[in-house]
Design a protein around this nucleic acid. Structure first.
Lengths: 242, 242
DNA sequence: TAAATAGTGTCTTTAAGACACTATGGA
DNA sequence: TCCATAGTGTCTTAAAGACACTATTTA
């Protein structure tokens, strides 16, 4: 029996230049995740989630953060356990009866951090909504992580993890719109965010557009991004603000 | 490295006869869970969650259902993965550096089923809100399971798992009240349940009280109890109605 | 017929959503 | 000066909660 730890890493990235849509209302960012190309059987040549075996001296979340760092050079702004997969038919090849239990985490990476992502030899970022067939049951795992991300964005503060330290309410709203896949009313969104006390206004403004500058807000770090109940010990790696 | 599967099993049981409160408004049932007394170090003599190592030929949920059956003879009406615990300091004894990763499930058992629970030599049911110090990190695990149960009761249909095939709306409301620890308005509760279409009225009534008989409802099995998104394959063991 | 719970009606409060409106910096 | 977005006001709708009220059975 093998025990592995894998991570579904989400970031908002510049869309591929080869992308067809370059119209006026094309969103500037695409929800993407880094995948690793397998170089041996089973699933030789298929894309797979970054991960690896659990080492003897690290916790589960540590292992997730380590493989995340090894494949992308990034540090996550948010990290949470997703699910433990341990069915017997996961290996794909019916010959192989070696059982693999995968404890999967999911992570969010900020814009600034993601921009400097190291792209290794066998690593590529793919858009989350147009994934090819992945190795093992990794399509199911990504689908589940996407579902968790979408449901959690609506009742928690994890959307901030995609942004830099300060941001306008429009930028925060666009993160929600990108994740949820639908537009949100700017006026109502503003009121909800302000009422939730999740963000704190700063004295700075984002200028440059052909319009009135927008106030910059910052995340109130005193408020935890999600309510994990008794599991409140944060597995969230500290943000690299340096 | 060892991989174990444990289960937090909840049922509503008759309160202990030794219980102090026998006043008029004492609730008839208590949220309880079966625990196993350890007979060796570490934590010799402490109560612990039922569980055991994962066998080579079974899935994770199968292992949870198996240990549940072995310790209590019961079949769960609801079974869901809770969390994977794998920190390095879980063993309790600082000498023992053997790492144990526990994949924990939580289960709900119906009233009829729980009434016939087999009580083994080292098994005892304890009230969930007055637990003693348990072995390992099992207090934290139970706290988290309780938190999940309480939050999930409010937006899903798992409360039905505690009841028999047919039940009155008062009985369903009392389950919610017992789990949530507060009273609910009967009129509003009735409307919410009816609006959710989770239950179907039958033509039978519960008679016997010194009052108007209450209509019996049954759970609409066509509606899944929870929304697990892409993980919708049910891990719920079928209810033993025989 | 009275006790006790089943079940209904309706008012208030709160939050979400739709959408018109004012404010202001920059081309 | 006008465009584009920032930001505000307000109406409608839906849901939750409080609580008075009627209905029906058994002791």
């Amino acid at each position: 029996m093998q025990l592995a730890v894998s991570t579904v890493i989400f970031a908002l990235r510049e869309p591929d230049r080869r992308s067809v849509r370059t119209g006026a209302d094309t969103p500037r960012h695409v929800l993407s995740l880094p995948l690793v190309c397998r170089v041996r059987e089973p699933y030789d040549g298929y894309w797979a989630l970054p991960g690896g075996p659990l080492r003897g001296s690290e916790g589960l979340a540590d292992a997730a953060a380590r493989t995340l760092e090894e494949t992308t050079g990034l540090r996550p702004a948010y990290l949470e356990q997703l699910y433990a997969f341990g069915d017997l038919d996961r290996s794909g090849s019916p010959d192989d009866h070696e059982r693999v239990v995968s404890i999967v985490y999911w992570a969010l990476v900020g814009q600034e951090e993601a921009a400097g992502a190291r792209v290794g030899q066998n690593v590529r970022w793919l858009a989350a909504d147009t994934l090819p067939d992945l190795a093992f049951d990794h399509n199911l795992i990504v689908d589940y992580a996407l579902w968790r991300l979408r449901t959690k964005v609506e009742y928690s503060r994890i959307a901030h993890a995609f942004l830099d330290e300060t941001f306008t309410l429009k930028e925060l709203r666009e993160v929600h719109e990108l994740v949820l896949g639908r537009t949100l009313d700017p006026a109502n969104f503003r009121r909800q965010v302000e009422a939730s006390a999740a963000v704190v206004p700063t004295d700075s403004f984002r200028t440059g557009g052909r319009h009135r500058p927008a106030r910059l807000y910052r995340y109130d770090t005193a408020i935890p991004p999600v309510d994990l109940g008794p599991l409140a010990r944060p597995e969230l790696a500290a943000r690299s603000d340096s």
